[in-house]
Design a protein around this nucleic acid. Structure first.
Lengths: 130, 130
DNA sequence: CTGAATCCCAAATGATACTG
DNA sequence: CAGTATCATTTGGGATTCAG
């Protein structure tokens, strides 16, 4: 008998919510990073170099810029190309998979721009009620 | 003169990336939480009680379930209704704003289910190359 | 210019016990 | 049942320094 019990309150198998197996949890763990989407958005404008990205994001450290780009490269969302100039330059760009992801994120991003004021208002109301 | 300088590499004003003012960063800080989207997805099935949500998510603690629900309520995405039965029962449900957010997230969620295997493959390839 | 390595702090999360 | 309170732990991220 399978160990994928079905939750009585929902229709889900436990497998579908398993942190290791649930694609939503895995993808969101990446995309939910503090800098991930910001960098992906910038790269939608075309390939950019390391420091150009750094300058565009005022409050990111080199450490996190490097690390986030590495993670994105590892996931196949961003490509990294080194030009052996002197000094060296490195260009980052969205891969087709990355472009596709950003297309899929369009709805969420639009929602954020058009509805965040409602969220802000809700917060103010909530915080105002003792 | 305004302090909203324009980045030379992109067309953005610094205001648009200001962590406090950028809706995308604000919304993602919430949605990117470890449990947020999971709970919102469950509530798409209809209103549910505290422990039903807890049972459906195998590895969440009561502490984080409470906190995430509070944050969602504060943001106007989830409603909370207390029934003074004995013992008490509390029902959580998506608000219209929450329903709307989940609609906007549809593209991303679909992408996760259909493309995560590609991400996994990319990871394996990346990790295999020394 | 593009990182890697290290140290360190703050925040997020988990574990457990207690309560109306 | 639906939390709260407290403590312990893990993780994310910043600052700094060094290197090809």
């Amino acid at each position: 008998m399978p160990d994928t019990a079905i939750d009585p309150d929902f229709g889900f198998t436990s497998d579908e919510l398993d942190p290791e197996k649930c694609p939503v949890r895995q993808v969101l763990a990446q995309v939910g990073g503090k800098w991930t989407v910001l960098i992906l958005e910038l790269l939608q404008h075309g390939p950019r170099r390391f420091n150009a990205l750094g300058r565009a994001i005022p409050d990111i450290s080199k450490r996190m810029l490097t690390q986030t780009l590495r993670d994105l490269e590892r996931d196949g969302l961003v490509s990294r190309e080194v030009f052996p100039t002197k000094p060296p330059s490195v260009q980052y760009a969205l891969t087709p998979l990355g472009v596709d992801l950003m297309k899929a994120m369009g709805g969420l991003l639009d929602w954020a721009w058009t509805n965040f004021d409602k969220v802000k208002t809700a917060r103010d109301v909530y915080d105002a009620t003792p």
